[in-house]
Each structure stands twice: as structure tokens, then as C-alpha cells.
Design a binder for these strands. Structure first.
Lengths: 205, 205
DNA sequence: TGTACATCAGTGAACGCGCGTTCACTGATGTAC
DNA sequence: TGTACATCAGTGAACGCGCGTTCACTGATGTAC
């Protein structure tokens, strides 16, 4: 399997990687098929051997993002060990780490405007990620008395929304844009207060 | 002041309105100067009498958005009446209402990639909006015992982030995209739990 | 091992398009006298 | 009130550009015999 020559060898993934870099650097708007092809050392037309078009390439970036994302969340939660609470907090931190470490994936997933239903594979990957988060919330919820327990899907949506909001508003630090606190601290404090509100942390530890 | 004819009369605002519609419909990517000009019944070149270019037009959309946003938040908070708590909750609801009612403004402000520091006027409007939210958080914070009171700027950032996350993840309902709960309910419940975590709502009312 | 051949990944030229922006201009408006 | 004139908002033609996509092609690879 020669890496170079007339045949590329692994062009499909090379295109995805090039696209991810471009999207991370210039945003979903700045990304062009032609540039991605050029970055992969290939003619724009070659892209069509592997993808139906520009949007299809972005969708694949998003799909791979959801897979990594789900894996990371699952790993961070680790079945709720050592305690459901600490595992849940680790999951929150992992969310931010993902956004920071995989900006191209993150943008493809959440800011590219690509619908999660564009592709069956993308829909499946996204559903799996959602499932992991809900599973974590469910696990956590069992420690709340049943009568005051909100649905797990809601708890998971809250933490997801808070994390996403922190990323979008305070982690994308443009130069000059004021980030009042380090995003990690902001999110950790926020999740902490929220969990206390759920009755999962003693009110005045 | 004839509304029509060779001279438009109020082209500047007409262009902003056209841009807002386009941005709301097609996203910041789909917006083009030429289309906005056409929608306003004018040649693309005419835009340059009123704006330096495409980005400058978007920046003005965002600026007007921040002004409306700040006004709405201020009105909703209403100086903390009748109680700081209820006023704060009203402010949260107003956030969602704003995103829903002014999608073009919202996208210009938060999803267009335009830096808040692109224009002094834009920076000023954005700072004012931030100030209103922090003021509300400060007012609310006074009801928390001093030693367990997080900084007001942090509380405001938390609620802002949660609201923004709910809008981005669950309110942009693409067809087929599963919104587990109505965004309003989701946000209200989330803010409620958060405020309880702050010790502002009785743990088991 | 050597040859013939099918496969198919990538080429390169071409396309039509609409974009943002510029420029010299035109003609409606409003003011001075 | 009527005329002359300055102002300046909008015109329309033109530009260069890079985009996404198509097409017939070419030549490297791998397999069958």
C-alpha cells in the first residue's frame, strides 16, 4: 500500500483530515472543497470519488466527531465509577476537553448547519452520543428520591446545554473578547451548583 | 420624505431589515450582500453608500440585536420587582423569547462569526447587554449568604450559557431533530434547579 | 515468473455562476437667492 | 413663487475571482491465466 503516487492510498481520510483542519481554522463558512482537495494534494474532482459533494464531506467530519465524542463521554463516565456523582462531573469536564481538542469535529457537529439526519450513519452516531449522556444522567438520577427526580433526559439536556453554552460563549475566546472566567472553572462551578440543586450534593459542604 | 423613487428614503435600515430576514432564513453563510440589496429593491453598489461592505452590514445587524436584547432583558428584570427571584426567572424566559422572536438578530450576534470588537458601537452595545445581565445577577446574589455567594459575573455567565445552549441545541428544531422537551420548559426547569443549588429556592418546596 | 487485461482512483480542462467590489455617471432633492 | 445650482443617493456596467461540479481521459494497481 504505497502512500504516494498516482493513487493516494488513503485519500478519503486525508480529505476528512484536511477538511477538519480548515473548518477548525476558518469556520464552516471558510471551508471549501477545493481547498481541502488541495491540502490533500489532489485535484478537486478527485473528491467526488469518495464523497457526493461538499456537504457529504462535512457530514462525515461530523460523524467521526460524534463517534469520538461518544467514546470520550463513555470513557469519562466509566460506568459511574467510583461514584455516579464524580463520574458525572468527569463527563462534564470531558465535554469541554473534547471541544478544545477537536475543534474541527466540534464545529462540524454543532455549527456547520449540517442536519443530523442528513445521513443514516450520522444520525446513528449522534443518537449513540445522546444515549451515552442520557445513560449517565439516568445512573446519576437513581440517587435522587423518586418523587423529586426530574427525567434523566432532562438532566442530561441541562448539562449538555450548559456545557455547550460555555463553549460557545466563553471558550471561543476571540482576542479582545472578555472571558470572565476560565471556561473549565465556569463549567465546573455551574455543574456543581446544578447538582446541588438536584439534591445530589449537600447544601453546605 | 417620499418612501420610493430614485432616492429610497430609508435605505440603510431597509438593508439591515433585508439582511436580518436573509440571515434568519438561510443562516449567516447563506446571506449575501447582493441578495440583501435586491430584497431592498436596490443595486448591490448602492449598499456601499451606507456600509463599508458585507461584514459591516452584519455588524450593524448584531448591534441592533444587542440593543433590543439589552432593552428586553432590562424590561424583563424590571429592577428586581416584584422579587429578585421572580425577576431573574423572567429574564431567563425573555432570553428564549428574544432568540425566537428575533432569529436574524440572534444569529448575527452569536453565530455570524463577527467579532464583538469589530466596531466601537457594536462593542458598546454588547457590553451594555452583558452589564444588564450581570446587574440582574448581582441583585439576585444579595439574597445569598455572603460566604457561599459566587461572584455575580459567574452566576450571570451560568444562566447565559444555559440559555444559549438550550437555544442552540434544542430550540433550532430542524425537522426530525428530536427536541426532548419544549425549550421553554427545559430552560425554566434548568434555571429552577440551578437557583435551588444557589440556595435561593427552598430545597423541597 | 511473465503477460494480458479489467478495474477504478485521480487528472485536467471546462462550465456556468454569483459573489463582493469599483467606477464614472445620472438625476432627484433641497436650498439660496 | 421661480430659477440656478450644489449635493449626494442610487445606477449599471464591468472586473477578477474562486467556487462546486461534470466529463472524457489516463495510467497505476492487482488479478487471472
Amino acid at each position: 500500500m504505497a502512500k504516494r503516487g498516482y493513487h493516494h492510498g488513503n485519500l478519503r481520510q486525508a480529505l476528512v483530515d484536511a477538511a477538519l483542519n480548515l473548518i477548525a481554522e476558518r469556520g464552516p463558512t471558510g471551508f471549501t472543497l477545493s481547498e481541502a482537495a488541495k491540502a490533500a494534494g489532489v485535484t478537486p474532482a478527485a473528491v467526488y470519488r469518495h464523497f457526493q459533494g461538499r456537504e457529504d464531506l462535512i457530514a462525515e467530519c461530523a460523524r467521526q466527531g460524534y463517534e469520538i465524542f461518544a467514546d470520550l463521554m463513555e470513557f469519562a463516565f466509566d460506568g459511574g465509577k467510583p461514584t455516579a456523582l464524580s463520574a458525572f462531573e468527569a463527563t462534564g469536564r470531558a465535554y469541554l476537553a473534547f471541544a478544545r481538542k477537536y475543534p474541527g469535529h466540534y464545529v462540524s457537529m454543532f455549527e456547520s448547519g449540517i442536519s443530523v439526519n442528513r445521513t443514516p450513519e450520522l444520525a446513528r452516531a449522534s443518537a449513540r452520543a445522546r444515549g451515552v449522556l442520557e445513560h449517565a444522567a439516568e445512573n446519576l438520577s437513581q440517587h435522587i428520591p423518586k418523587e423529586k427526580r426530574p427525567p434523566a433526559a432532562m438532566v442530561s439536556a441541562h448539562v449538555w446545554a450548559l456545557s455547550h453554552g460555555v463553549v460557545e460563549l466563553f471558550s471561543r475566546g476571540e482576542p479582545g473578547s472578555q472571558a470572565p472566567y476560565p471556561p473549565e472553572d465556569l463549567l465546573e462551578a455551574g455543574v456543581g451548583i446544578y447538582l446541588r440543586g438536584l439534591g445530589l450534593i449537600a447544601p453546605d459542604r
